[in-house]
Simulated assay, not measured.
Amino acid sequence: MRDAFRAKGHDAWSCDLEPGNSKYHLQQDVLTVLDRGWDLGIFHPPCTFLANSSSKHLYIDGNKENGRDPSRWHQLHQGAKFFRTLWETEAIDKVVCENPIMLGYAKDIIGDEPTQIIQPWMFGDPYTKRTCLWIRGVEPLIPTYPKWEDCRQALGLPVDAKPKAEVHYAAPGPDRWKKRSLTYPGIASAFADNWG
């Protein structure tokens, strides 16, 4: 995302507790830099405990009959509060928060429905990954390809081609969360084109 904005001449920075691969990356808690005069904040709060796909993990051994897993419920509440803090920051006028389809419990804590739901294929990447956007201060994204058929034709794919669900079938392992959280290049470019 940062690189897509920088490629268009914007002074864009990333911020994460994880190390980055650029001199334009701040390795620190994002809450400590919100008040630095940013004109647009695009946030990707961790979704591990917020995503609908995590619902079974709210229960001991992934089984609702075993009762709630108190640790997971606590992490759900913490994650939703962090999301809401970013979404409601008064330090930045234009805010976009990105997350996958969210648990109903998390949405209840956040208190707002997403403004827009997009797919990578809408922006030229032949994949599915329903992505929710909470948008404040800027207009919703304009899809390059409103229908999969438009994207398929533009990419010259066979008539029977379908968008791939590679994120959903990522192999288990320690880096699975990183692979599942990547932003497709077409979406990053669309953010920069529409909001830069």
Rank of each mutant, 00 (worst) to 15 (best):
P70M: 07
D69S: 12
D112F: 11
I135P: 13
D175V: 05
V138L: 03
R68I: 08
S189G: 05
T183S: 01
A80M: 02
V95G: 05
K178S: 03
A188L: 08
P163G: 04
E166Q: 05
D29I: 15
K179T: 03
A188Y: 13
G111N: 10
S55P: 08
P146L: 11
S54I: 00
N194C: 14
Q28F: 02
R6A: 00
P174E: 08
K164C: 06
P100L: 11
H10L: 09
P143H: 04
V33G: 14
E65V: 12
E149Q: 13
L182C: 04
F5W: 03
E18S: 14
L76D: 11
H168P: 00
P19H: 14
S71R: 14
S53G: 00
Q75M: 07
E149D: 15
L133T: 13
F191Y: 10
Q27R: 10
L157I: 09
T89A: 09
L40W: 13
R152A: 12
V167I: 05
L182M: 10
C151T: 13
R84N: 13
R72D: 06
D193L: 06
T89Y: 13
Q119L: 11
P70Y: 09
G20H: 09
G67F: 04
P140Q: 03
G137M: 15
G79I: 01
L141D: 07
K94A: 05
A7T: 14
V33F: 13
W73S: 01
K8E: 06
E18W: 15
R36T: 00
R136N: 07
P120C: 06
K64N: 02
R176S: 10
K147L: 15
L103Q: 11
D3P: 03
P158L: 11
